[in-house]
Simulated assay, not measured.
Amino acid sequence: MTILAFVRHGQTEWNHQQRMQGRKNSMLTDVGVKQAQSLQNKLATVDFDACYVSPSLRAIQTAELIIHNTQHSLLIDERLQEIDMGAWEGQLAKTIEQESADEWFAFWHQPDTFKALNGGENFTEVEQRIASFLADLLSEQTDKTYLIVSHRLTIKVALNFLLKHSLSHLNQLPDIKPNSLSIFDTQTDSIISYSDISHYE
Score class of each variant (00 low, 15 high):
M1L: 08
M1I: 07
M1R: 11
A5M: 04
A5Q: 05
F6V: 08
R8C: 03
Q11P: 03
Q11S: 05
Q17D: 13
Q18G: 00
M20V: 09
M20E: 00
Q21G: 07
G22K: 04
R23T: 09
K24A: 08
K24F: 03
N25T: 10
N25Q: 08
M27T: 15
M27L: 15
M27Y: 14
L28Q: 05
L28R: 06
T29I: 03
V31W: 05
V31D: 10
G32R: 08
K34G: 09
K34S: 15
S38E: 15
L39I: 09
Q40K: 15
K42H: 12
K42M: 14
A44Q: 15
A44M: 13
V46F: 14
D47W: 10
D47M: 14
F48L: 12
F48E: 12
D49I: 04
A50G: 11
S54L: 10
P55N: 13
S56E: 15
S56Y: 13
L57E: 14
Q61W: 09
A63C: 11
E64A: 10
E64P: 05
L65K: 13
L65V: 12
I66P: 15
I67V: 14
H68C: 12
N69L: 07
H72L: 12
L75N: 13
I76K: 09
D77A: 09
E78R: 05
R79V: 09
L80F: 12
Q81F: 02
I83D: 03
I83N: 04
D84P: 01
W88S: 00
G90M: 08
A93M: 01
I96A: 01
E99C: 02
S100W: 12
A101P: 11
E103H: 07
E103W: 03
F105G: 00
A106D: 13
F107W: 15
F107M: 12
W108M: 03
W108P: 02
W108G: 07
Q110M: 04
Q110T: 11
Q110Y: 04
P111K: 08
D112C: 06
F114V: 01
K115E: 05
K115N: 02
L117N: 10
L117Y: 02
N118R: 00
N118E: 09
E121H: 06
N122F: 07
F123W: 06
F123K: 01
T124C: 03
T124G: 04
V126C: 09
Q128A: 13
Q128E: 11
R129S: 01
R129D: 01
A131E: 12
S132E: 04
F133A: 11
L134T: 08
D136V: 02
S139Q: 14
S139K: 14
E140I: 06
Q141P: 00
T145N: 05
T145F: 00
Y146V: 08
S150H: 01
H151L: 02
R152H: 02
I155S: 03
K156F: 02
N160S: 15
N160T: 14
N160R: 08
F161D: 00
K164L: 05
H165E: 12
L167V: 10
S168T: 07
S168P: 00
H169I: 02
P178R: 04
N179D: 14
S180R: 06
S180L: 07
L181T: 15
S182G: 04
S182A: 05
S182Q: 03
T186S: 14
T188C: 13
T188P: 02
S193P: 00
Y194M: 11
D196M: 05
D196R: 06
S198R: 14
H199L: 12
E201K: 09
E201T: 07
